[in-house]
């Protein structure tokens, strides 16, 4: 179920790469599928502009975190499938861990009560 438009959020800086790595980590995908998967998984809360998806993919490929291959897709047409490299997987794990630490820390701070702050 999609969230209403005004509830959609822009992605924080730098998180698009992490999300792409995560999605592709579940299995090789082509660009359109990645866009759809991002939308589905985030249940439409996060707004990923399709225009910035491709530059991000190319950037990750150039950095050696992804590798790509043209092969036949389910429709029978050739498509460019992206896959995580070993470096990409390491990067994904490292970034996931640091994101979690940050999220936990931010969560702790936001949950703080006046007593704790004293």
């Amino acid at each position: 179920m999609a969230a209403p438009d005004d509830a959609r959020m822009d992605l924080p800086q730098g998180t698009l790469d992490l999300l792409i790595l995560k999605v592709i980590g579940l299995g090789p995908l082509h660009g359109y599928a990645i866009a759809q998967r991002l939308e589905q998984i985030s249940r439409g809360v996060v707004d990923v502009p399709q225009g910035s998806l491709y530059p991000a993919l190319h950037r990750l490929e150039n950095r050696g975190l992804l590798e790509a291959e043209w092969k036949d897709s389910e429709t029978g047409r050739q498509a460019k499938f992206y896959r995580l490299t070993r470096r990409g997987r390491t990067q994904l794990e490292a970034e996931t861990a640091s994101w979690k630490r940050l999220a936990d820390a931010v969560g702790l701070i936001l949950r703080a009560t006046p007593e704790e702050a004293r």
Binding site: G31, Y32, Y54, T75, R77, A79, K80
Partner: peptide, 25 residues
Amino acid sequence: RLGDRGRLERELSAELADHIERHVA
């Protein structure tokens, strides 16, 4: 990447065309 410029350009066009075709479908 500089040397393969022609191939990269062709692939880029194909990839984006593919995206649009899938969205249209």
